[in-house]
Design a protein around this nucleic acid. Structure first.
Lengths: 207, 207
DNA sequence: CAGAATACTGAACATGAGTTCAATTGCTGA
DNA sequence: TCAGCAATTGAACTCATGTTCAGTATTCTG
């Protein structure tokens, strides 16, 4: 059941990691926090306690390091998926939500690959949930899976402003935000079904 | 009622705009599509049909051009706010959703300023909605306003993958995604209120 | 109409960042 | 032990990009 990919890299103590492990860990954090463009190889190397040249030596290029990060996330999710899709999605959000949110905001084949992977998990979670009765079915389950994924990633995309708003750390802010989101997920937000009809009409008119 | 800020810059024909107007328009688009770091002054200048030097001449620096974009969005929202907060928020999403999503993903004082502005509108929309009865009240209205803002921006943060998924243009993809989101907003997604209790417990344990 | 101010440009400059490279250190297996 | 291989580094190189600058065209104004 438990493989190497089960343990999210960010939870392993720094000293226990090899140089390349520390580099990937640092990259995951920097990419998540500042985005790929603003995260420099030198910064990542500094966090990992190595030289910039070593980063290139091990991974070939910044872009390939990014791909390695993608691979770690995918491996982690696939390992978790053996328990249940819903758990895998939750775990992916909890450990790599910020990274995934940054990556999926980009427009590249690699971004699309990660998206497809996560969407697969979300689809399975939606299908399972409806079968078990824990999720309400949708007239468009595939779009529902996309919604579940994107709404789930939203707080991570805006973490900086979230913590600014809460005036504390990211985790506390996330916990506070989780309440109204859970309210919406369990009871809805709008009382008038007109907005749903409007959305269905717009969708109907377009196909 | 109608001021200059009412018309979103992106809807004005290119030929009708002055050079600086075209620059701001191009900047709004480039910043929204590729993010500030990846949008180059030369690209923006090219889109606007001017030289890179002119961009600097008019705005001083790339950063100040970004601030001007922020100002345009804020002015637009404030103008729309005179009708209703809900309309202002909808209009802001429709016209500047992609730009706002990119900006609010960053961690800077400017990002926080824009966030506070939009959060104010969201707060007002939540208050109005509850008063009129169109929105269900929350145990934490302020967090609810944050949720409304972030969930509303989510599709714009991931537009590229959204269109990839739908296999069409962004607008069609957004329309399709709007259906399950409207379902969630009107009827909820989960049948078991346990997740709400869990969120409330976690929140309660933290304060 | 003249001149001043403004709009505008191409070329050059400075710098930050990804990458290369030659050299050094440390380890490992015959 | 030692030869060879992997790990590691500092310095140099290259290139993209924000910005400056000197000069030209355009537009406003008295």
């Amino acid at each position: 059941m438990s493989s190497i990919a089960d343990a999210p890299l960010t939870d392993v103590p720094l000293a226990d990691l090899s140089a390349s492990g520390r580099i990937v860990r640092a990259a995951l954090t920097r990419f998540a926090q500042h985005g790929v463009a603003r995260a420099t190889v030198r910064d990542i190397a500094g966090d990992a306690g190595v030289s910039a040249a070593l980063v290139i030596h091990h991974f070939g290029s910044k872009e390939q390091l990014r791909l390695e990060c993608d691979r770690r996330v995918v491996a982690f999710v696939q390992a978790k998926e053996r328990t249940s899709a819903a758990r895998a999605l939750d775990a992916a959000f909890a450990h790599y939500g910020a990274y995934a949110a940054r990556m999926l905001a980009e427009d590249s084949p690699e971004s699309r690959r990660l998206f497809d992977e996560l969407l697969g998990v979300s689809r399975a979670a939606v299908a399972d949930g409806e079968k078990v009765g824990s999720l309400r079915g949708s007239s468009d389950p595939d779009a529902q899976a996309v919604a579940l994924l994107m709404l789930g990633l939203a707080p991570f995309a805006f973490t900086a402003n979230l913590t600014h708003w809460a005036g504390t750390d990211a985790e506390t802010a996330m916990t506070r935000l989780a309440v109204p989101i859970a309210e919406i997920y369990t009871a809805g937000l709008m009382t008038d079904p007109a907005v749903l009809e409007a959305a269905r009409d717009a969708q109907g008119a377009r196909e």
